[in-house]
């Protein structure tokens, strides 16, 4: 370690090497993923996110929803994500090509949201969840506002109290639109072929016979 410049260059080379290998290589590689055109549906998948949903993603970001919710379905032999009906298949990189800032998440305090749009029936259902909360999720009351009964708000009321109705704010509407847009069930040709593993190879069934 007597030679200063060579030491610093080696350090920088080690970091640059990993940057080229991980950051730059995946950038080049994943940029090659374009929407997959399905001739049978005569459409390309995934479909772009509507504008209001893209705004909703910003609400999702600033509230830090990713602290408790992941947005990645694991394949059948990595946990029971598919059994839990969080998706029909593993999440693939192509699902996220329209997202600016993916919200993969690290901990599942609540359910995975990668395909939550397929499970939620309507914006009203989202408002009910957000306004009332659940046993494991707090209520996000600050996403709602009071307005006099009968006022024209153009929004669906989620609750009433004497003379007032509770209506979602713009942020709540955007967030609901974002959640409803989350759904990518399409099995793109290349991924479907490249990840098909013979069922015999899937290590399972050790626990099953007991029950």
């Amino acid at each position: 370690m007597k030679n200063g410049p060579i030491f610093f260059l080696s350090l920088l080379a080690a970091l640059t090497f990993s940057w080229v290998g991980l950051a730059l290589a995946s950038h080049r590689q994943l940029d090659s993923l374009v929407p997959y055109y399905d001739p049978a549906e005569a459409k390309a998948f995934p479909e772009p996110m509507p504008g209001i949903a893209a705004r909703g993603q910003l609400v999702y970001q600033d509230l830090g929803c990713a602290s408790c919710h992941t947005q990645q379905v694991r394949r059948a032999d990595m946990g029971n994500d598919i059994d839990r009906k969080w998706g029909t298949r593993q999440s693939w990189a192509r699902d996220y090509i329209y997202q600016n800032r993916v919200q993969l998440g690290l901990v599942r305090v609540g359910p995975d949201l990668a395909n939550v749009g397929a499970r939620l029936k309507s914006a009203t259902e989202v408002y009910q969840l957000l306004y009332k909360g659940t046993a494991t999720m707090p209520a996000f009351a600050f996403l709602f506002s009071d307005s006099p009964l009968g006022a024209q708000t153009g929004a669906i009321a989620v609750g009433q109290s004497e003379g007032h109705q509770v209506v979602p704010t713009r942020r709540a509407m955007e967030l609901a639109a974002y959640l409803l847009s989350l759904n990518s069930p399409h099995a793109y040709g290349p991924e479907a072929a490249h990840n098909a593993v013979k069922p015999a190879e899937a290590p399972k069934s050790a626990e099953e016979p007991k029950k």
Partner: peptide
């Protein structure tokens, strides 16, 4: 970029 299962293979025919 399309292989997400470590036992998958990119040479599989699409």
């Amino acid at each position: 970029p399309t292989v997400h299962d470590e036992r998958g293979t990119a040479s599989a025919v699409v």
